[in-house]
Design a protein around this nucleic acid. Structure first.
Lengths: 151, 151
DNA sequence: TTGCCAGTTCAAGTCGACTTCAAGTCAAGG
DNA sequence: CCTTGACTTGAAGTCGACTTGAACTGGCAA
């Protein structure tokens, strides 16, 4: 199997070289050797990176994702953790949907002040009660990936 | 109208005193005066905090939320921004729903290895293509609020 | 009058996921 | 042979939203 240098992996995966080194430190990926100082990666790293991206998208931290790989590199799925995360996503989805509706309402509502609009006040009190605690913002991530992991 | 000290506001709103001072620095809330060194807040601050919480839940940064209050303290709604955020939430919702389904599938799928499961591979390639870039994780936030802002 | 305790200030620290920087290495091309 | 430029390292910096720490203040009860 061909080996790729870090720049090649970066290009194909859309993950920056510095991030790749960071991932290696964290044990998320491994290089298969060196050419001088340069890391060489097996093409399989692209699939691995896709798994990492998927885990991140699901809301797992890099450390949690690292747990999902057995020392031998195989996938070690914890079904309980996945189900728990799916349930958490369900809750998040409900919360975000409510907020989206609230935003659309606020953008259209013609009440003199939103504070006088019953719908808005209902949403507001939900927020005040902590029922809507923070989701967290997505990153900028600009670079055009380019169809990694031949799936 | 009665005034509240910072501890009282913290208790009623579920927002820590240090966060309240931070919000004041940022111009998100204002105290109505002092008693010695101690800030005094008008009870209206609770509604204001509910608005802040709502903005955060919607994914606005504190700076963006600050923009939504006119200098006089009234709400200054930018309908365009709200609609844009609602649209963004729609995209996020779709993405998260897809991932949730993927997680549930992965938790139940009996393929020898997930990497051999077509459904999983499809999801994986979506992740690899960057189509699923990160949502961002919710904070711990433990303290039991207690029904602030009499809405 | 004293001493407590909740408040105050400003500076620095935290967390996660990276990025950036300075200084150094090395393989290949001219 | 020498330059170039993509790589290497470790340390430090970034961002947002707070928290924590140290040193201090001041109103109120005993």
């Amino acid at each position: 199997m061909q080996t790729l240098d870090i720049g090649e992996v970066a290009r194909r995966s859309g993950v920056s070289a510095s991030a790749l080194r960071y991932y290696e430190q964290k044990g998320l990926i491994a290089s298969v050797g060196r050419s001088g100082l340069r890391r060489l990666f097996d093409a399989g790293v692209l699939e691995r990176l896709a798994l990492v991206a998927l885990g991140q998208a699901a809301g797992f931290s890099l450390d949690e994702i690292a747990q999902m790989f057995a020392p031998d590199g195989r996938l070690r799925i914890d079904r309980r953790a996945l189900t728990a995360k799916a349930d958490e996503l369900d809750r998040t989805l409900r919360r975000l949907a409510a907020i989206r509706d609230g935003l659309r309402h606020a953008a259209e509502c013609r009440a003199a002040s939103h504070l006088e609009c019953p719908t808005f006040r209902r949403i507001l009190s939900a927020a005040a009660s902590g029922a809507m605690d923070t989701p967290r913002r997505r990153r900028p991530r600009s670079p055009g990936p380019a169809e990694a992991a031949g799936a």
